[in-house]
């Protein structure tokens, strides 16, 4: 089975996000970048398939700026077999999905695994859009994949249990979590990845325009600084409970 994972490089979860002076973007100078966490789960899920069946081929691709090469290298170091970069600055999400559709048409994977959303914009757009462009079945937020004769069983967590869906191949699923935590690249994995080439081409080489119908950010604000709490001390339990109820209704407006 060939599994393709489109991944996105995003600010690392340890980065303290700051709004840039333009008020519509975040400061990216000097920050650490990582593979988006749900994409990492997708990689881990695919690599677990590969651990179980070494004939599995796991490929990763990203549509992004030159710096996203580091994310691809990291995916190779985790154990992926192939990686390629479609170079684009600020491509609209739909343009990303269109570019990926071309990549899928060339690479002919049996299964595409996307993270359920990227941790920067949290749009959850590219996976379903790509399935739509490909005309493939799409199963959202899976936690496990099990091959079945020409098809895959896809597990989803639901309230109090799980559901198992079956999709004919080729199919696309978005990943919520893998069974194990994503593996760290081992040093031998890093050395193996070093020997691999990461081919690269610009977005327009795929005949895709960087522009597409999309949203724009109007403004961005950090959450307001949290005020200090309030302690209700005076009076007996009944009086304090009354004042608490009043405060919750009139001040916090949660009742």
């Amino acid at each position: 089975m060939k599994i393709l994972i489109p991944l996105k490089q995003v600010p690392d979860s340890t980065v303290r996000v700051k709004v840039a002076p333009d008020g519509t973007s975040v400061v990216t100078e000097g920050i650490t970048w990582s593979i988006s966490p749900y994409d990492e789960y997708a990689i881990e899920m695919a690599l677990e398939r590969k651990d179980a069946d070494p004939s599995t081929v796991v490929a990763v691709v990203t549509v992004g700026p030159e710096r996203s090469r580091d994310a691809l290298r990291q995916a190779l170091a985790m154990g992926c077999d192939e990686a390629s970069l479609v170079r684009a600055e600020g491509a609209a999400p739909l343009a990303v999905a269109r570019a990926l559709a071309k990549v899928v048409a060339e690479a002919k994977p049996d299964l595409v695994l996307c993270g359920k959303q990227a941790s920067d914009d949290d749009q959850g757009f590219v996976g379903p859009a790509l399935a739509e462009l490909l005309g493939w079945p799409h199963v959202a937020t899976i936690t496990k994949v099990v091959p079945a004769e020409g098809a895959v069983e896809l597990w989803r967590e639901v309230e109090g249990g799980h559901e198992v869906w079956k999709a004919p191949l080729p199919a696309l699923a978005t990943v919520h979590k893998s069974e194990k935590e994503p593996r760290y690249p081992s040093l031998p994995g890093i050395m193996k990845a070093k020997k691999k080439d990461i081919p690269e081409r610009p977005l327009d080489a795929l005949g895709v325009d960087v522009a597409a119908p999309t949203w724009t950010v109007v403004s961005m604000e950090p959450p307001p600084a949290r005020g200090g709490g309030k302690i209700l001390r005076d009076g007996d339990a009944k009086q304090i409970a009354e004042r608490l109820a009043t405060a919750l209704r009139d001040e916090a407006k949660v009742l």
């Binding site: 580091d70 290298r73 990291q74 690249p185 040093l187 890093i190």
Partner: peptide, 14 residues
């Protein structure tokens, strides 16, 4: 180098 950075990162995350 790229592999030194990756090694550092793996060790840091671990």
């Amino acid at each position: 180098s790229e592999e030194q950075e990756l090694a550092q990162r793996s060790a840091r995350d671990f």
